[in-house]
């Protein structure tokens, strides 16, 4: 069958996947379109609720890249601090790493026989 990729443990077909997604998507859309009985349009239900604070303007509410995953990077400070320090931007360090890795590989290849 066209589009059927044998993976050694099974197979993958993007075409079959798309058909499945379309079928499941249609069911989801059908259920969604049936609607929620208690919903009333143009009432306070339409407004966002941000802890009771007044809503910011749309332009002000855009979250910049620096704020995204702040918690993730903060929690992994112990990992990130040395890693970022390693990236000095100094060409001497770049060259140093090449030499160090070359020596390690020369030893590994030499010793392994």
């Amino acid at each position: 069958m066209l589009g059927l990729l044998e993976t050694g443990s099974g197979f993958w077909s993007a075409i079959i996947w798309i058909v499945v997604v379309l079928v499941i998507g249609s069911i989801v859309i059908y259920i969604r379109n049936k609607g929620e009985d208690s919903y009333k349009k143009n009432t306070e239900q339409d407004k966002p609720f941000i802890s009771g604070n007044p809503e910011k303007s749309k332009e002000e509410s855009h979250l910049g890249a620096s704020h995204i995953y702040w918690g993730f990077t903060e929690a992994l400070k112990g990992y990130y601090n040395p890693l970022v320090k390693m990236h000095t931007g100094n060409i001497n360090d770049y060259s140093g790493w090449i030499i160090v890795i070359t020596v390690i590989i020369l030893i590994m290849v030499g010793v392994s026989g």
Binding site: I98, I101, T102, I105, L106, M108, V109, G110
Partner: peptide, 9 residues
């Protein structure tokens, strides 16, 4: 082996 150890890195 030395040649290989130079080419890989």
């Amino acid at each position: 082996k030395i040649a290989l150890g130079l080419l890989i890195p």
